[in-house]
Design a protein around this nucleic acid. Sequence first.
DNA 1: AGGCGCTTGTGAAGCCGTGCACAAATCGCG
DNA 2: CGCGATTTGTGCACGGCTTCACAAGCGCCT
Lengths: 248, 248
Amino acid sequence: MSQQRTGPTDGPDFPDLPEATVARLPEYLRALHHLAEDGHDTVSSEGLAAAAGVNSAKLRKDLSHLGRTGTRGVGYDVTLLIDQIEQVLGLTHRRAVALVGVGNLGHALAGYAGFGTRGFRIAALFDADHSRVGEHINGLVVRHIDDLPEVVDQESISIAVIATPAHAAQHVADRLVEAGVTSVLNFAPCVLNVPDGVDVRKVDLAIELQILSFHEHRKSALTALPAAVQKPGRVGMANRLGGEAVAT
Amino acid sequence: MSQQRTGPTDGPDFPDLPEATVARLPEYLRALHHLAEDGHDTVSSEGLAAAAGVNSAKLRKDLSHLGRTGTRGVGYDVTLLIDQIEQVLGLTHRRAVALVGVGNLGHALAGYAGFGTRGFRIAALFDADHSRVGEHINGLVVRHIDDLPEVVDQESISIAVIATPAHAAQHVADRLVEAGVTSVLNFAPCVLNVPDGVDVRKVDLAIELQILSFHEHRKSALTALPAAVQKPGRVGMANRLGGEAVAT
DNA sequence: AGGCGCTTGTGAAGCCGTGCACAAATCGCG
DNA sequence: CGCGATTTGTGCACGGCTTCACAAGCGCCT
Ligand SMILES: NC(=O)c1ccc[n+]([C@@H]2O[C@H](COP(=O)([O-])OP(=O)(O)OC[C@H]3O[C@@H](n4cnc5c(N)ncnc54)[C@H](O)[C@@H]3O)[C@@H](O)[C@H]2O)c1
Ligand SMILES: NC(=O)c1ccc[n+]([C@@H]2O[C@H](COP(=O)([O-])OP(=O)(O)OC[C@H]3O[C@@H](n4cnc5c(N)ncnc54)[C@H](O)[C@@H]3O)[C@@H](O)[C@H]2O)c1
């Protein structure tokens, strides 16, 4: 079955995969796991695309970059495709993640089960506040940030999450990079400067809301002029589009 | 000066603004507020671009869509530009936001100060768990989700944040839409189906990590072949690129 | 065994976004 | 008052992404 492939860790079988595709693969992966739980063993591109909320042609093109994955006339083998995507995303082993800043948000993240079920393991918690150091959260002890190099080395941590106030984020990022971390997920609302070879992704709640605000603003500006449905009661507004996403 | 514009709420002065630009305006806004606090009253496109972490040409093109904003030879008036961007993003009044799902993550969000400082006001908290209803968080009372239509109406809420488990998210979204909410920020790892005219943005921590994982995987695959720096000690790795982002 | 229906994989076209490079505009100074 | 330094605003070309549409391939049924 899956063993027939020429080798799991063959190495450079990356046809350098468009960035947009990479960003969607995790979405497919989640939908596939869901389908697998529901007992499906094959999916059509149409079905998977619906479950992931994308265009089916886009999905097929994305998957075509992984090599020959589907079977014409049938669809995609769910478990095989899961393996392929996890392979490409480097999720074959559970990656160790460090979380820096165990405050309001950090506590929530530390207790988040979604880490474990999606291929990651929180390997360490750090904070600069001495009164927090030593605290036990979800089976982990909060360590002082000065221990960073040591722990990063011991636990082979390459990914870190920053959940400190914005004014501390750049400093934390510098220390992370210095300790050997090469990927950072930043929750602090600020721009991080890192050397080449280090990846940074950011999550900014306020930015997301402001983008929504823009569209709200635009909607109300538009509905002000035409004979608009100011408040259609509450009929027919709900799930019109699409139907159920997962399964059928 | 600024009063000379033909009218602040003129309405359809939207040259429909590229989506990519909309997504960056909040970033500029944050950088501008930072600059204003530091006493700057004008910025060059170069300076602002550096502070926001983007290309200066891109920034100029983005801002050019807002109309005549800068002064050649001088730069941009910081406070004026802040006003313009807030205008376009619809941040002239503090928008009311509902938060549904006051669990682990919801608590953190409810206590987040960044809402207030970036143009939003948490107007209501909802949960389905009766044992949570009535709880006071940050000056707000958690209400039962059945009160949604009433409260949404009273508080003129058009934006909602979903922080419930994934299996409840679609149901919550339906009820939100039914109550009149037209923008949703979804933290639950699932696809939401909503009717036309309703905007959904999602934040999925695991997806972000998986994208980082891919790049990690690729990095280690690449450094495996050439005469690579497996572990360069810890020298010279840190802040090489760029320098300080904000001010100079 | 052969045909038929279904689904993948992909060529090609169009759109959007990015970044260079430069002309136009503005200010300050002599 | 005019000139040069400076910085904006933008025309243009290029690359990437999306989408349509269809031929090639596969399994199933007769
Ligand atoms: N709370 C939220 O819901 C939320 C939402 C979106 C974004 N954020 C952002 O996430 C970040 C954290 O938010 P929060 O509400 O948890 O803040 P917080 O103040 O509750 O927690 C910050 C933690 O970081 C620690 N810290 C400070 N400096 C540090 C350093 N140099 N090294 C290590 N640890 C350090 C503090 O001791 C504290 O425990 C902020 O940047 C915030 O803007 C928070
Ligand atoms: N905790 C995190 O750090 C984190 C990070 C990223 C994403 N998420 C996602 O955010 C969501 C919430 O995570 P959490 O850790 O806070 O979970 P949680 O179980 O602690 O909280 C969920 C809350 O939602 C409420 N709820 C359930 N069904 C509801 C319904 N139909 N209507 C209203 N409220 C309802 C529950 O009563 C509970 O209070 C999940 O989807 C999770 O995957 C969480």
